[in-house]
C-alpha cells in the first residue's frame, strides 16, 4: 500500500488559465486593480462571474498561492 496522503489526495484536471477569459477587463497598473474596459468600473465592485465567490476560487494552491 502506498502513502495514505497520496491515495486520499483529490485529483483534478489542471484548471485552464482564466487569463484568456478576461476580454472585458484590463488590469490597470496605476490603480492597482482590474477594470471593465467598457465602463471603467472596478471588476471587484461588479457582479461578474470572475469574482472570487468561494474560498480559493476554483484553484487549490493553498492559501496565498504558497504551493507555486
Amino acid at each position: 500500500m502506498g502513502h495514505i496522503l497520496l491515495e486520499k489526495a483529490f485529483r483534478y484536471n489542471v484548471p485552464k488559465q482564466k487569463r484568456n477569459l478576461f476580454r472585458d477587463y484590463k488590469y490597470n497598473n496605476i490603480k492597482g486593480y482590474w477594470v471593465n474596459v467598457k465602463n471603467g468600473n472596478a471588476l471587484m465592485l461588479e457582479n461578474g462571474d470572475f469574482k472570487p465567490r468561494t474560498k480559493k476560487e476554483d484553484i487549490e494552491t493553498g492559501e496565498d498561492r504558497k504551493g507555486e
Binding site: L6, A9, F10, Y12, N13, E60
Partner: peptide, 13 residues
C-alpha cells in the same frame, strides 16, 4: 499544504 502534480493533473490533500 500538499499540492501535487500528476502529469497533466493535480491533486490536493
Amino acid at each position: 499544504t500538499a499540492l501535487l502534480r500528476y502529469g497533466s493533473r493535480e491533486a490536493f490533500v
